[in-house]
Design a binder for these strands. Structure first.
Lengths: 158, 158
DNA sequence: GCTGAAAGTCGGCACCT
DNA sequence: AGGTGCCGACTTTCAGC
């Protein structure tokens, strides 16, 4: 179970993944060794999945972002497995979800420009076996990103 | 401009945001001081937006994820500004985008359970001024997350 | 723009409360 | 559980190539 200090630690590391253990210890009012032990435990128990640098997509040449809904022909089970295996290797696909509703999959796509995007849709996505219908929604503006998980309002984590 | 070593640095830090400068220097075949200078430059020039611990949502009590499309009454410009200002403070909204298509906004929602989700939709989202239509798609499975930005296939960053 | 050395700082562990 | 102290490793700066 998480206590209030654990939640503080998670919140701090979420905001700044490179916080030194000493600074972290100061912020949660613990000695460095006690703080480090808690962090290691949180990592081992799976509360922290990893640490990552957040790169700036436009700066790196990715100026197009879009959400694409894909329907596949459900009369064939193999196509589902094949689809999942295929998208794992496609760099243009940032995120992928199985969703309820009319479509089977929701994909978040990142591409260099619109030409790159349309080529990807027509010549890559559209040619995966079983793909029936593709509906694209371009991102015009990114209002909020990766909203913080904590504070957990009234939540009682298992 | 980025050279090959910069790209290697970005790729490494993307995969592991807590890599020590010394280990990073080894991996890109540079001395620690030269490596550190490049990292600082990359940060200052905005290629790296930050470092964050990736927290495990289910472990923290968030078991429901959904994409919600929102249409607002476009006859009133103020509602747009108001909507943006309101969603910034809502913890349940992880990401928010302005998109093309029938809806105005696409929101990624995280909630503790279905009751939390439906309460949020009915009593919070639905009551924001100007909101006309809400369409929800629940996430049944998360197939891919935060696909890596690099390597930049054939891209020539500005 | 990189290297190498020096000084300050930190992480990790043993031990104690 | 948390705190103290120690040592080896690391970060960071700066002079020099």
């Amino acid at each position: 179970m998480l206590d209030q200090i654990d939640v503080k630690i998670l919140r701090q590391l979420q905001a700044n993944g490179r916080l030194s253990n000493q600074d972290l210890a100061d912020q949660v009012a613990l000695s460095p060794s006690a703080c480090l032990r808690r962090v290691k435990t949180l990592e081992q128990e799976g509360y922290i999945d990893g640490y990552h640098a957040l790169l700036n997509a436009p700066k790196l040449g990715y100026r197009v972002e879009a959400f694409v809904q894909v329907r596949i022909d459900q009369s064939n089970d193999d196509w589902h497995d094949q689809f999942i295996a295929t998208i794992a290797d496609l760099d243009e696909i940032a995120d992928a979800y199985i969703i309820t509703g009319n479509a089977n999959y929701l994909l978040r796509i990142r591409a260099r420009d619109f030409e790159h995007f349309s080529t990807f849709i027509i010549h890559t996505l559209n040619r995966i076996a079983g793909v029936r219908d593709i509906q694209s929604n371009m991102v015009m503006q990114n209002l909020k990103n990766n909203g913080k998980l904590l504070p957990l309002p009234n939540s009682v984590p298992k």
